[in-house]
Design a protein around this nucleic acid. Sequence first.
DNA 1: CGCCAGGCGGCTA
DNA 2: TAGCCGCATGGC
Length: 302
Amino acid sequence: MLKNVQHFHPKEIFECGQCFRWTPLNEEKTKYLGVVHGCVLEVHLQGEDVYLHGVSKALFQAYFLKYFDLDRSYQQVKEVLQRDPLLKKSIAHGEGIRILQQDPFETLITFILSSNNLIPKIKEGIKRISSIYGEEMLFQGEIFYAFPTPEALAKATEEELRAMGLGYRAKYIAKTATLLKEARRFTKEKKLRPLTKEEEAKCAYDLAWIQELPEEECLKALMKFPGVGIKVADCVMLFSMGKTGAFPVDVWVKKAMVYFYGAEPKSLPKMRSFAKEQFGSLAGFAQQYLFYYAREEKIKLP
DNA sequence: CGCCAGGCGGCTA
DNA sequence: TAGCCGCATGGC
């Protein structure tokens, strides 16, 4: 149990577009079930307290503390962002939003799948991928499937993935999983023997290495994966690599930027650079508040 | 039927 | 570098 937790609402955390493996268990959406990090767990908000089921204290300390971003002062984040009067409404609407620190590989594959796709279909695709290539888990008598490792997913052919309804993204996912499998392999072997130039080049796809790069280089490195453009790279950086200055611009954020800031509707790159200038290292939080407001309120542009 | 969805890759000027 | 088009799929 986490006592007296502020800035934490399951509905807002899990419905603000950053994750796809949490499902509501009650009508009020205070209780969710999630598949994360090879675990199945429940999160339940009761009054001021948050209850986690299915996770030991040790695992909570070792992984979920960071996953739920519990070391961060959201009070402070909001105080700074609220200096922009145009953001106040969105922040008030999503008081309980937090940015999860998810697994980079899962986030990368998930957001490749997200391009020009629908949220229910993304969820279904991830579930299918996991049920074929992921490890089986038992939770309260029910079977769940963890998201696969790069090695497991690299076994999938483009045709197999296409047959799962992933569309033209199947090729990107198969290729990306293979790139990551090789990157991990050669990164390990590097400690044992000198690598050839070709092998060395493959290490540049290792996500653990990419994650440590400064934001601009990190973005460029991610965009080398097939099916990854600026939007997907921004999502991976923000939702799994702790790059809080990232500002993914999708259709909903675009609507919010036009609606609140009078942005030019067609220029996505300009919205992105404006927001990064305006919000700095807190741009990612601003993005989440704006996304959630726009989608919940179904903002329509004239 | 046409339109669209948390875009991207490829081509053109 | 900006602007356009095709792309798999399925719901409306």
